[in-house]
């Protein structure tokens, strides 16, 4: 079977081209790791101001990475936070206990709240503490929240690039012409590419997903199988789109020029930034991009722990994208041979 011949050839090319193989697996891992450090710095030094808080409570909160300073009651909490660079101020002055968070950094907010709740959880059981944000709000995302989007994005990005360039090289090095002088059918060539890259992509997705979940420790509520399923479908759409667009590039550099045009904008509409705030003039773009659906499904699984009943529609759309791109590919090849 000629499809099989193409599949075997592509896998052999991967095995020989160790650098590309490494790029596709190591680069996403590297970038995700760096991002996780950037957003989830482990050694957060928290600086908390307290007003009228009992010493017993202060002792519980204080620790290696938390400094607690007693300050005088003031009306201008916001000013004090700003001036003295506090991450938070606890105010037990009135009957209602209040926690003022600095608020602009979600990871710090989280750390402060966790620390305080962990320390005084039992004591404050009857008196609920009100959390107030000086800047920002509790709705702000954290790495846990956009991690799944980034996992999807990097898989999409690298599969798009590598698949596009390798199909492009098929053209520039003359092997496409040589292939089309053989009795291979156009759909056999495209299918061979999809399966060959698909097999490699499965491996890539599995490694990146495993790494993100178990090493970077991304929040993972749902089933690993669904994560794999979503990333694979997303990768297939990247693969078929990459091959398709390579038909419109003359060389590798022109292929790279598609990245800011086609790949990066997808990130803006994938939920990395709050979609509700996207201007109406642009919000229609999101639903046209595969990453929009991939990211949504990944978040459903990883953050909300949902299963197939929630993600099937996203998966279906992704399969639809791939299918349309495959058909367009078969047609694009007509340019090179009519039958």
């Amino acid at each position: 079977m000629r499809v099989y011949a193409v599949v075997i050839r592509i896998l052999r090319q991967f095995i020989h081209d160790k650098r590309t193989m490494a790029l596709m697996i190591v680069a996403p891992i590297l970038v995700l790791t760096m991002l996780s450090f950037v957003f989830n710095g482990e050694d957060l030094k928290l600086k908390i101001g307290v007003v009228n808080v009992p010493n017993a409570v202060i002792e519980k909160i204080e620790g290696n990475d938390v400094t607690v300073t007693k300050i005088e009651a003031t009306e201008d909490i916001k000013g004090v936070i700003k001036e003295k660079d506090y991450d938070a101020i606890m105010d037990f002055n009135n009957e209602e206990r209040k926690l003022y968070l600095e608020g602009s950094d979600p990871s710090i907010n989280k750390a402060v709240v966790e620390r305080i709740k962990g320390s005084i959880g039992s004591e404050s059981a009857e008196t609920k503490m009100v959390i107030l944000y000086t800047y920002g709000s509790s709705d702000m995302t954290t790495f846990d929240y956009f991690g799944p989007v980034l996992v999807g994005f990097f898989i999409f990005f690298f599969v798009f690039l590598i698949a596009g360039v390798s199909f492009l090289r098929e053209r520039t090095q003359g092997t496409l012409e040589r292939l089309l002088a053989s009795p291979i059918k156009r759909w056999e060539l495209v299918t061979g590419y999809v399966i060959g890259f698909g097999l490699f992509t499965m491996l890539q997705s599995a490694i990146i997903a495993l790494y993100s979940i178990y090493i970077i420790d991304l929040k993972m509520e749902g089933s690993f199988f669904y994560v794999l399923l979503v990333t694979l479908m997303l990768a297939l759409s990247a693969l078929t789109l990459g091959i398709l667009l390579s038909a419109f590039a003359k060389n590798e550099l022109q292929m790279i020029q598609f990245i800011p045009l086609v790949v990066v904008p997808q990130l803006f509409f994938s939920g990395l930034f709050n979609l509700d705030t996207v201007s109406d003039y642009l919000s229609w773009i999101g639903p046209l991009t595969p990453l929009y659906y991939g990211a949504d499904a990944l978040r459903d699984v990883m953050i909300r722990g949902q299963g197939i009943s929630e993600i099937w529609a996203d998966l279906l759309v992704l399969i639809g994208f791939s299918f349309v791109f495959i058909i367009l590919n078969v047609f694009a090849l007509k340019k090179h041979r009519r039958i």
Partner: peptide, 23 residues
């Protein structure tokens, strides 16, 4: 073809095997 249409990252044998199964 006038220009060599070969997969340079593969061995000669792998190239031959590929084209053999195609034809």
């Amino acid at each position: 073809a006038q220009a060599d249409a070969l997969y340079v990252e593969l061995t000669a044998k792998e190239n031959l095997e590929f084209f053999a199964s195609l034809s």
